[in-house]
Simulated scan of single mutants.
Amino acid sequence: MKITKNFKILISTLMTFILILSCINISYSAGEPFDIQAKSAILIDASTGHIIYEKNIHEKLAPASITKIMVLLLAMEAIENNKISLDDEIVVSSNAAGMGGSQLYLEEGEIQKVRDIIKAICLRSANDGAVALAEHIAGTEETFIKMMNNKAKELGMENTHFKNATGLDEEGHYTSAYDISIMSKELLKHPKIHDWLTLWMAEVKVGKEKDVVQGLVNTNKLIHDYKGANGIKTGYTSKAGHCLSASATRGSLTLISVVLGCKNSSIRFNESKKLLNYGFANYDSIVLAKKNEIIKKLPVSKGKIDKLTIVIQDDLSILVKKGNNNNIEKEVVLPDYLNAPVEKGKKVGEIIVKINNQEVNRVNLVTTREVEKANFLDMLKKMINNILGN
């Protein structure tokens, strides 16, 4: 009888222990599927911004040369807005030429074209080139830094503050993995930047006489040895550690991974591959509509024209998990008609996408042209045309 009682106690203890282990296992599986050897890390879908993996993503950290993603973003916007051109000649200042760290070894007073400076920033992470470009765009580095912070605020980068255009360690210069993913996503929207982000090797002639050839090799090794890699930027300082914002595309899916504060260069590349591999193995992107696709023609009340074409403002895609039963719903929200006057590019509606009744994406519907309000003669002409038509 005593043995039976001890046996019951033993079984009860074992069952309790097994239950505790089960709870621990359930708790782990409900969290992230693996750990990343970095202070902070994130993996997102570049199209929707959906977060697939996260680790300390809002922690403020030194970003090193990943800072230059913002420099490149502002440069692409300046080019597309015709503020500068790729063939503009930059006169290198003493301030730019005096930058330390990774550089192109530019001389004060030498002239370089914008396209070659961008190339040097993308491949060698040239600090002197970044400052020279910043001064060309804004006039002074200080003014450009204000532009960087204004753009960060505009993009919703709440844990970011820039103190320089290079990423060299400086008190008060910080960002987060999440904020880096935001500006990386924004940079990839500019088609021209891919000409440089995907280069493995190139050359640039430097010096006042252009008598020295600098061979450039992309600091992002994934461009060379990872399938579909197409960006974006490495970084290293003693304070920041080894950092990388990486992007890759396979099929219709583009992913962005960010790792900050890795102990060495090999770890940052291996952990970035781990994140990207996980994303491509488990997710797909479905394209539902392309930018400028015509959605509808809406009647215009009291306008100089009777109907106005409405298009989708940006590509519309959704991220779906492979193997899941995804019930996709698409709702078009538009008014029955528009009242003149109407501005070109005005938001007049939305497309909302849901998977299994949960919203996963939405995109604006906009007008394709301006419509002025009709005057008396316009209305009379319409009336006569209607009568003749009938």
Rank of each mutant, 00 (worst) to 15 (best):
237 T>C: 06
105 Y>D: 04
367 T>G: 08
68 K>F: 07
95 N>T: 11
106 L>G: 10
187 L>W: 10
26 I>H: 00
333 V>S: 12
93 S>R: 09
330 K>G: 09
183 M>Q: 07
311 V>C: 04
227 K>R: 14
353 V>T: 05
128 D>Q: 06
80 E>N: 11
33 P>W: 08
180 I>Q: 13
37 Q>A: 08
204 V>I: 15
295 I>D: 11
130 A>D: 06
51 I>A: 08
164 N>M: 11
157 M>Y: 03
325 N>Q: 10
253 L>I: 02
178 Y>K: 06
275 L>H: 02
154 E>D: 13
330 K>M: 15
328 I>H: 11
18 I>D: 01
153 K>R: 14
71 V>H: 02
52 I>N: 03
197 L>D: 06
233 K>N: 04
133 L>F: 06
339 N>G: 04
165 A>K: 03
148 M>T: 12
125 S>P: 10
384 I>M: 15
123 L>A: 09
44 I>S: 04
64 A>G: 02
112 Q>W: 03
2 K>W: 05
380 L>T: 08
65 S>A: 09
335 P>V: 04
54 E>F: 01
215 G>Q: 10
354 K>L: 08
232 I>H: 01
296 K>N: 15
327 N>M: 11
14 L>I: 13
186 E>M: 12
31 G>C: 05
124 R>P: 07
383 M>S: 08
189 K>S: 06
164 N>Y: 09
357 N>Q: 09
83 K>T: 15
373 K>R: 12
21 L>S: 13
285 S>K: 15
271 E>A: 11
75 A>H: 03
47 S>W: 00
251 G>T: 08
189 K>Q: 10
39 K>D: 11
243 C>H: 09
260 L>G: 07
85 S>A: 07
31 G>A: 01
243 C>R: 05
184 S>Q: 01
87 D>G: 05
285 S>M: 13
171 E>H: 09
156 G>K: 07
45 D>H: 02
152 A>E: 10
41 A>F: 06
235 G>T: 02
127 N>C: 09
340 A>R: 04
227 K>P: 04
28 Y>E: 05
220 N>D: 12
61 L>A: 09
265 S>Q: 13
222 L>Y: 00
183 M>C: 14
270 N>C: 00
192 K>Y: 07
306 D>A: 15
345 G>I: 09
222 L>G: 03
